[in-house]
Nucleic acid binder design. Structure first.
Lengths: 237, 237
DNA sequence: GTCAAAAATTGACGACGTGTCAATAATTCC
DNA sequence: GGAATTATTGACACGTCGTCAATTTTTGAC
């Protein structure tokens, strides 16, 4: 047989993909609590036992979805980091990728939030945990690489004792926090925050300005650049 | 009767306080999923029905705890905002308050995260929801007030069309995101982020520097100032 | 002090969820 | 064709939520 997978194995994979597909939909529609193995089984027209053959608990499904999300974002970051231009422009491109990710795969972002909050972690296999760590780590590495390029070119200086990763941690926190608040608060407008996504962009760029990262945002229109990146790099998505 | 509350009413209040106390402990020990009305009832040596007299579901308990947390932080922010000094120093004082809050009431912060992620919101009474919004709003107002003071004194300028609230949104996101990541990730150290709390401080100050807010962090040691605020204002806590 | 009305408390119950596993059905391969 | 292997099933034990009729306790009028 020249095939690497038997028919059985392919069917199994397809079914697993269907479970994840359904899981993602359910998760974004009814949340973590609404996601039930019983309902997945009913919807798929398989018995519960069969579903448990694939994922030994709810949380495994969720972490598998989170891993898909992280992989997707990693890929988008890798693409964004190749943007031609000075390091600071590439940072803006990554910012655009982060924005695009949340906008285009809202369920993916929702899964990330869930994994960070509910006590899902303990119930999952170390294999998937390691995969998640690895994605996170590589993602961080891409961004800190751009910071290192900026440092090498003398475009910015870090305070004594601070690493590129510390700077990235700030950007990461800012992004994660902003989108978490954004998706879980319906009263931002009432509090004078009419365009939180724009506010997030500004905050990011002001932060980089604060590190003295050239060219500063007075010299270059990063808002326009980010729109351009979203149009040119991620237009097909 | 000179008393405003009857014995019955006082007993009721005390029991309610005990429920919340127990709820807070359980929540931080076993998480949202581990918190069960059955267990609360057993632990309190009352029947389930009695507990339901106080809170008509799990989520109400959690939101009540969240409200306590928000009230506590509001109080700390109010205190911090009275710090004598220029607006930017008062911002640093508020940053110190935020830090102190998370460190000193970790369960409180954990509750906030839970409310923002799990689908708790829909199941709760509008009364508690409004209280939460009100706390949030007042908290924001304190901080944006300091920004307005800074603007009035000419210490910073905002980009065209941006409100003080947009700036505060950035700081809020940064803080919330950082502490969320911090408490839900055990691999930060492996990724070169050895002191995330310090990284958060830096990020905040760089962001304010980016807005050109005087005095800049090169001119004034905000790290020392924050430590001082924590020692002098929040020493007793 | 007595006792009926009101209020508080109880816990069995139905509905639903998880994860298991002996029984059953389908598939493989000799 | 049929024994061995593998896949699938769904009843089951257990746990949780929120309800509500039944029971106990408290109240206050006499």
């Amino acid at each position: 047989m020249p095939r690497t997978l038997t028919r059985k194995q392919r069917e199994r994979q397809e079914r697993e993909a269907r479970i994840l597909e359904l899981g993602r939909t359910m998760l974004s529609e009814v949340g973590y609590l609404g996601l039930s193995m019983d309902r997945i089984a009913a919807e798929m027209e398989y018995s519960k036992g069969t579903i448990y053959q694939h994922f030994c608990n709810k949380e495994e499904i969720i972490l598998a979805l989170a891993n898909e999300a992280l992989e997707k974002r990693l890929q988008m970051f890798e693409q964004a980091a190749t943007w031609p231009g000075r390091p600071r422009e590439r940072m803006a491109a990554i910012g655009a990728a982060a924005e695009e990710f949340v906008e285009h795969y809202p369920q993916h972002f929702a899964v990330e939030q869930i994994v960070r909050s509910a006590s899902i972690w303990e119930k999952t296999s170390s294999q998937r945990q390691e995969f998640m760590h690895s994605c996170e780590s590589r993602c961080l590495h891409i961004v800190s690489g751009v910071v290192r390029d900026g440092l090498a070119q003398g475009d910015l200086k870090l305070p004594a004792g601070r690493t590129p990763e510390d700077l990235v941690f700030g950007l990461w926190s800012l992004n994660f926090g902003a989108y978490t608040i954004l998706t879980s608060s319906d009263s931002l407008g009432d509090n004078g925050i009419s365009d939180p996504v724009l506010a997030l962009r500004q905050s990011q760029h002001r932060m980089l300005d604060g590190y003295g990262w050239q060219p500063l945002s007075q010299e270059l229109d990063y808002m326009a650049l980010m729109d351009q990146v979203k149009n040119e790099v991620f237009r097909d998505a």
